[in-house]
């Protein structure tokens, strides 16, 4: 069973998340309310996954994020999913810069209410994957002019790609064949001057690297 340390300062929401994680089949070994307690809990329990709020006491700015970075420096690519009240590019960049962006997730807090998707995102990160909130991708894409070269469908595919979906999963979502998705991905990577690759995780990172360079 995946052992989780949870950090969230809102008591009510923390209790709710503990229940939710248990329901999703995770073993919550510790639930804490600030960044220092998070570091202490991880040092004590050595969990398989950390789920943390970004904004926590005492400063209510990015305590969770800083704690997560520290832990990932200490424990290599410790899987971390950071929950944010709002989309902030620099937060996403900060996380993706740690441990080559492996086993990391940046999600809007509101995503936790879509139970199945949330569970899937957590499992993707535990497996070493990267999950970035669609809203972040959307904002980054709005700011990037070369993306204007992409068709509407290609942008949809890119957004799903950036969320860490496989070509098959994308095909299912868009109700098209996997071959069509392959073709779209090829076009996207070509239009964005990125070499094609079979590794979905590397593709996500490539896309995000490109997006970050652009912004």
């Amino acid at each position: 069973m995946t052992r989780v340390v949870l950090a969230e300062d809102g008591t009510l929401l923390r209790e709710g998340l503990v229940g939710l994680l248990a329901r999703l089949g995770f073993d919550v070994v510790a639930a804490v309310g600030d960044g220092d307690a998070l570091v202490a809990a991880v040092n004590e329990h050595h969990p398989d996954l950390v789920v943390t709020d970004i904004r926590m006491p005492p400063g209510y700015s990015d305590e969770g994020l800083r704690a997560a970075r520290r832990l990932r420096e200490q424990y290599g690519a410790l899987p971390v999913v950071a929950l944010s009240q709002y989309v902030e590019r620099s937060y996403a960049e900060d996380l993706l810069d740690s441990a080559d962006g492996r086993a990391v997730g940046y999600l809007l807090k509101d995503r936790v209410v879509d139970i199945a998707e949330f569970g899937q995102a957590l499992r993707t990160v535990v497996r070493g994957g990267t999950v970035v909130d669609p809203e972040v991708v959307r904002q980054l894409m709005r700011r990037s002019d070369p993306l204007d070269r992409l068709t509407e469908r290609e942008r949809e595919v890119l957004a799903l790609l950036a969320e860490g979906h496989s070509n098959l999963a994308i095909a299912e979502r868009l109700v098209v064949t996997e071959a069509a998705v392959n073709k779209h991905v090829g076009n996207i990577l070509a239009k964005l001057d990125l070499p094609p690759s079979a590794d979905s995780n590397r593709r996500v990172l490539a896309v995000l690297t490109w997006l970050r360079r652009r912004s």
Partner: peptide, 10 residues
Amino acid sequence: LVTLAMGLGV
């Protein structure tokens, strides 16, 4: 509200 929506989701 998030807690409520989460509960409803479960």
